[in-house]
Amino acid sequence: MVAGWFAGDGDAFRLLGTRCAACASVFFPREDHHCRNPSCGGGELEEIALSRRGRVWSYTDSRYRPPSPYVSDPELPWEPCALIAVELEAERIVVLGQAAPEVTVADLTVGMEAEVVPGVLHEDAETTWTTWHWRPTGVTA
């Protein structure tokens, strides 16, 4: 789990971002030091919970094993997964993430509604690394 990027579980699961108090720009991943907007001189940032739902902006399938720091077992074959870019209308940002395991590119269309759900990035005998996934609304695990 990346500390401070998400919180909660089930229906309370949310991505966490930050908003600049001066220009209202929203950032994900979060920014804790300065406003990333080049035309803003502000620096006061507040943590916000991002919208749980948005619209699919783009998607693709990942057919290769990503490099470190992504955690995967090199002894196991790579399983392709769908990657989804979701536009959060209220925040006016696009957030990229893996699709939930049951979702393939055949299930996706640009413009469809998707929601953020908790997911597992990797697990071994000692640790479960958690992350977020995007799932089209109406699709259940």
Score class of each variant (00 low, 15 high):
R53Q: 11
L76G: 10
C40G: 07
C23M: 00
P67E: 02
G42L: 00
P77N: 04
L16K: 10
W78L: 08
D124R: 05
P69V: 01
T140E: 12
G42Y: 03
L76V: 11
G54L: 07
S68D: 14
E44I: 04
L96C: 15
W57P: 09
V103Y: 01
W134R: 00
G138P: 03
P77D: 05
T104E: 08
V71C: 11
A125N: 15
T131R: 09
A90P: 14
E91D: 03
I84P: 03
P29L: 04
P74F: 05
V120M: 06
A12P: 15
V139L: 10
G10H: 05
P136W: 10
E123V: 07
L83G: 10
G111N: 07
E47C: 15
I48C: 09
W5K: 07
R53Y: 12
T60G: 12
A3K: 12
A3C: 13
Q98N: 12
V110H: 07
H33W: 09
D9L: 04
E91Q: 07
W132C: 03
W57D: 07
M1E: 09
E123A: 10
P69A: 02
E123I: 07
G97Y: 01
A85F: 11
F6A: 11
S62T: 14
W78S: 04
P118H: 06
E87P: 08
Y59F: 10
